[in-house]
Write a protein that binds this DNA or RNA. Structure first.
Lengths: 369, 369
DNA sequence: CTGAAAGCGCTTACAG
DNA sequence: CTGAAAGCGCTTACAG
């Protein structure tokens, strides 16, 4: 097989097959009204020449058969799951996916989305951008649009979220039921109203109030390191068993760093994350985390977008139920001892231990199952 | 600010500014031969209308100002580093990046690259695809191309690799110097000649021979789970201290699962990975790994591609030096004891312990520094 | 320095 | 069912 020769055009195919360009166009689009012989002739010519239509040219008149996904942060393990889902959903269609990463580290503006639109994608899935609802609303006038992670209805595009209030409640109640009474929430300092992090924060506060507990919010900049530094300070000040509910797994990994540095057991400092990224399940990490099914989100986002492209105009707002994955990083509280009480460096995290039995829900890969 | 209105065209701008379309075109391309007043008038019209040129239309005549990157596996933490580097390198240019993920889980064919070419990108960076050199050679006749991870020169495109032979030697010698004599190499069953994994395997064998050791190769399918299963079997059969050099970090994480399940210490089963992904550095993983600087690769790939687009035709073959990051997963060999000899579940991995001092090269985030 | 015209490779009405 | 013609929004020679 040789690569697509983009020197060959629809004209070449038409000439070889002895038909018009319009006929070839119909065949490649699988359009109505082509005789079997015509189709066969044209297909043979296409195969012989290795012809592929150029998306750019198609886009100028009709559709580009391309969907664009705007990604917030390619280094965070959650987003690839969404892409994987979207890819699956597109497997049997003519559509292909292109991804637009942020133009810079803290690009939260519309640049990435605009790059997609510049390329005449037939529809856009936006995941991370912090652009205003109004901006999206206007974009959606011309471009079919699905926004992931926006907790509101919109007039002209679809929104798709995990039920972050339920997810946060799951996390807090889990820690409460284990026996924790001091439960902090570590989250990003900047979180737009209606964003997943904002909703989780609000839910955290309200569940804490319901439980009669005092909320403690630790605000951080993005990144594992910021989470490590902030939680280290907070954990060092406490001398009782505590728990930290981190707003996503990347932050939770930072908290686990701090816990590890301070040599604390899960009973002394429990940690719960959000997203259930692949690494959370690793037995050496074994992070309890709220799973919001990124794969499923990718699948649904593509389905919604395809529906819009096919003509649907009324807006949809889908809410997916999250699920708590209990693992070794959260355990019943156990008072911190004087350092000398047990031999240092012989405590073990993430393995079976009398004080913190690994939950039965731990998946294979753990020796305790 | 409002979204780009793709209903506004160059024609609208020209009319508003009272000039020709050609003049507007020159201004947006920053082309030679425009008077300052012309530029000002046109720019004002562009701003007023929120005009953005459509990449698809531009591509039909000139350039699309878009570079395409073909990604092998979005779930592997190494590739995002390359993207991050490429993004950085493009920050001050007119160019934007689009990414093409594989169309399916085991898509190793040309589909993703073709998707990019269909969109008339001005150049392509290919990272993972297993297409033949001949195919790429032909593609490169029409499209500026840089291939990452191909250990050979090519006539029409540039190649960029890390020195995988050196990297593998670094890993094996490190284990040897710690005192290991039984060092297995776990790698993918399918690895094309000239691919990084193939070069690492060949180097592994040759270094083992030099050292007078018997090579043991464990062949696996892609994925952490396959690595876990295969290494579990292998580790369970051994009753002496062993070491596993895994062909990349994802596989190494699988080996660490097995090590963890068998409750082995780094002295009993040392593990070295390749890529030095973000998670390797986490104190609870602390994986010794060969760093091949993905960020740097992304930067250089973009530089090479831009040079080609600017007109360079002679081919380049860049080789980057890898660096070993020593961490807690590799340690001096220590005989496995009868299980009862030491209290179970009190041994600790990844923390300071008499048998496996954490190397001084461990970064911050470890309590031992 | 500026503009009128042609053309990139497709698809879309429209006529046959 | 099939084809000739127009046109999508740009850039590229080319004239002025």
């Amino acid at each position: 097989m040789t690569p697509a020769k983009h020197s060959t055009t629809i004209e070449d195919v038409a000439r070889l097959a002895g038909v018009s360009r319009a006929a070839v166009s119909k065949v490649i689009r699988d359009a109505y009204g082509v005789s079997p012989e015509m189709r066969a002739k044209v297909q043979a010519a296409i195969d012989e020449l290795g012809y592929r239509p150029r998306a750019a040219a198609r886009a100028m008149r009709g559709a580009s058969y391309t969907l664009g996904v705007e990604l917030p942060n390619i280094l965070n393990g959650f987003f690839p799951k969404i892409i994987a889902g979207a890819t699956m959903a597109l497997a049997d269609t003519q559509y292909q996916l292109i991804l637009a990463p942020p133009r810079s580290d803290d690009d939260e503006g519309p640049e990435a989305i605009e790059a997609l639109v510049d390329h005449q994608v037939d529809g856009v899935v936006t995941i991370g951008s912090r652009v205003s609802p109004a901006w999206l609303e206007e974009l959606a006038q011309n471009t079919p649009l699905v926004a992931i992670g926006r907790h509101y209805d919109s007039a002209h595009f679809d929104t798709l979220v995990s039920d972050d209030a339920v997810g946060a409640a799951l996390a807090v109640r889990h820690l409460y039921e284990l026996g924790h009474r001091r439960i902090a929430h570590l989250t990003l300092a900047k979180a737009a109203v209606g964003s997943p992090h904002h909703v989780r924060l609000v839910a955290y506060k309200s569940v804490m109030a319901e439980l009669g507990l005092t909320p403690e919010v630790i605000l951080v900049d993005p990144g594992e390191e910021a989470a490590r530094a902030a939680s280290l300070k907070w954990l060092a000040r406490a001398d009782e068993p505590v728990a930290v509910f981190a707003a996503h797994d990347e932050l939770a990994l930072g908290v686990l760093r701090a816990v590890s540095e301070l040599d604390l057991t899960p009973g002394q400092a429990s940690v719960v994350g959000y997203d259930d990224t692949a690494i959370a399940e690793h037995p050496m990490i074994s992070l309890t985390s709220v799973n919001q099914s990124g794969t499923q989100m990718g699948i649904i986002a593509v389905r919604l977008l395809l529906e819009r492209i096919a003509g649907r105009t009324e807006h949809m707002h889908e809410v997916l139920p999250p699920k708590l994955q209990v693992r070794g990083s959260s355990a019943a509280p156990k008072a911190r001892r004087t350092r000398g009480a047990a031999p240092r460096n012989t405590t073990t995290r993430n393995k079976k231990s009398p004080e913190a039995p690994t939950p039965a829900s731990a998946k294979k890969g753990s020796s305790d199952v």
